[in-house]
Structures are given as structure tokens and as C-alpha cells.
Amino acid sequence: MQKRFTQNFLTNKYMAYFIAIAFFLGSMLLAISIGTVHVPILDIIQIIGANIFQYSIDHIDPMFTNIVMNIRLPRVLLAGLVGASLAIAGAAFQGLLRNPLADPYTLGVSSGASVGAVLTIFLNISLPFIGEFTLPFLSILFSFMTILLVLLFAQRIERSMKVETIILTGVIFSSFLGAFISLMIALTGNELRQIISWLLGSVSMRGWEYIKIIFPFFTIGSILLLMNVNELNAMSFGEERAQHLGVNVQRRKMLVLIAGSILTGAAVAVSGAIGFVGLVIPHLTRILWGPDHKHLLPLSLLTGSGFLILADLVARTIISPTELPIGVITSLIGAPVFAIILIGRKRKERRG
């Protein structure tokens, strides 16, 4: 009986990964194929394969190669990396804070990164040797500064840094930084449209350079979180119980917070503020495949990536040739889904 249960469990998990990977790859191919110029999916596979393995594809239109490699593939990959970063960070924060309503923005990291970007646009800052990458660099820097300040203040208020204290400190910083952003928007002139557009979120016209910016942060942040899945499982049952199981709660909490902040800060830096991905995707993944962080984190990563790729596809095609900000699409999709989840949870609690 136990052997059959184990086999069913493994089969379900393998099926979960198969579905998540298929969703991610299907989203990628669909997003690269659809646009003003339709590119057949078989041609896309051959073009990408030819560039990876360095073989000739003379029978394919060079225009298709240019569209895939220089326009759509970098955009799709960037959307995928941003979605994956926000989703895995959201899953980790929800486990750490023992609150399924938490997301990467709870600690004010997004607000900090947004302040860095808005300040760069507002003051027209251009750092030497960085040039056009000043905006993402300062966004990441401000996100780091924000999480450090949140943790410092939380520790000053309460040395043990309980979850409630960290959340309240994050809310305070988010409110303050949000007011600061509003002040800069009120004072700005010609840059107003650029600032509003950035705050609404977009992966349009970013190119391979932005992938090079986010990828190292995505890799470091994801590895750090995946190294702490057992500790996240323990801490999701409470800090005291985790301590009894031998977990160094304060150290692990700090590592998870820093890793999540790296992921969120880098994502916001390259794409602007995109809401609901880190909130809804981990929550849906938990409902579908359970709360074990060993599987929850990688499944959230894959699902979040595919979701944001599809959201960007909708953003650029729904009223083509005009593009909508991707943050608008994620909010329009995420808010109703989140409301349905909340209603379902309440009904389940009443029945229970």
C-alpha cells in the first residue's frame, strides 16, 4: 500500500514537471511565432537550433531569422526570466512568511527598485562606463539598499526579527517610497510619460543586453532559494518548530530574504513594476501540486515564466499595432484569479 502511494506520488510529480515544462516551452514557441509577421514553429526550432549548433539553414527566409533572433527571442526570454524571478521569489516569501497572500513586493523591494529607476529618469542620470545601463544598475542598487534598511529596522525593533515585524517594516517602507515616487511624478515634466510607462512594466525593445543583466542575478537568487527548500519547509510550520528541528532560523531567514530581493530587484530593474505574478502563480501552484518547497519552487519558476511570456504576447497583440504595458495585463488577469482563489478559500474554511 505504501509502495503504491509512493509510486503515485512520484508519478504525479513527474506529471507536474511535464505539464510545467510543456507550458513554458509552448508559451515560448507561441510568443515567438505570433506577431505582425507569422513565423512557422518548425522554422523557429530550426533557426534556434542553427544558432546553437552552428549549422546552415539556407532554405529559411533571412527575415525570419532576423525577427526570431534579434526581436522576438530576446523579448520572450526576458519576459520568461522576469516571470520566473517573481514567481520563485513569491513562493519563497509565502513559505517564509507563512502567508499565501505575501509576494515579492511585501518587503518594499519593488518600491526601492522603482525609486532608483524613477530617480534616474527624473534627474537624467548617466553613470560613467555604464551609460544606457544606468537605469537597471541603480534600480538593483536601490533594491539592495531597501532590503538592508528593512532588515536593519526590523532587527532594531525586535532582535529576533519575527515575521510580523518584517512585514510591518516592509509596509512602512513601501508607503514611504511610494509617496516619494508620487512626489517625483508630480514634479516631473517631459519625462512623465517615460516614468509612467516604466512603472506600468514592459519588456519591449530590451534586447540581449538586458538578458545579460538579469541572468546572473536570476541564477544566484534561484540557486540560493533552491538550496534552502528543506529549511523553508520547516519554517512554514513556524519558527519555533523549525528551531527544534535544528534550523538556524535567523540565518536562513536572512538568506531567503536576500535571495528573494536579488530576484525581485533585478526583475523590476529590467522590466518595471509587474504585479500579481509573485502572488498568484505560487498560490495556484501550491493548490495544484502541494506545499512542498522542493517542488513548489521549481514548478512556480516554470509556470511563472510561461505565464509572463503569454501575458506579454497578449500585451503586444490584443490591440495591435499599439502595445499595452505588461503590468496592465498581469493585473487584469491576476486580480480576478486572485479574487476567485480567495472566495474558494473562504468557502472551504466555512465547510471545514
Rank of each mutant, 00 (worst) to 15 (best):
L141Y: 04
S143V: 01
F144Y: 13
T146D: 01
I147E: 02
L151S: 13
L151M: 15
L152Q: 12
F153D: 00
A154D: 03
Q155I: 02
I157M: 05
I157A: 04
E158H: 10
R159H: 11
K162I: 10
T165S: 04
L168T: 07
T169K: 07
G170Q: 02
V171Y: 04
F180A: 13
S182F: 01
L183R: 09
I185L: 15
A186S: 14
A186K: 12
T188R: 09
G189V: 01
R193E: 13
R193L: 06
S197G: 06
L199W: 04
R206C: 03
W208H: 06
K212G: 12
I214A: 00
T219I: 13
T219M: 10
G221Y: 03
G221P: 09
G221C: 05
L225W: 08
L226D: 05
L226M: 11
M227A: 12
N228I: 07
N230W: 15
E231F: 08
S236N: 13
A242F: 07
H244G: 15
G246E: 09
Q250E: 14
L257S: 00
A259V: 06
L263T: 06
T264P: 10
G265Q: 01
A267I: 02
V270Q: 00
S271N: 04
I274N: 02
F276T: 04
G278P: 12
L279V: 12
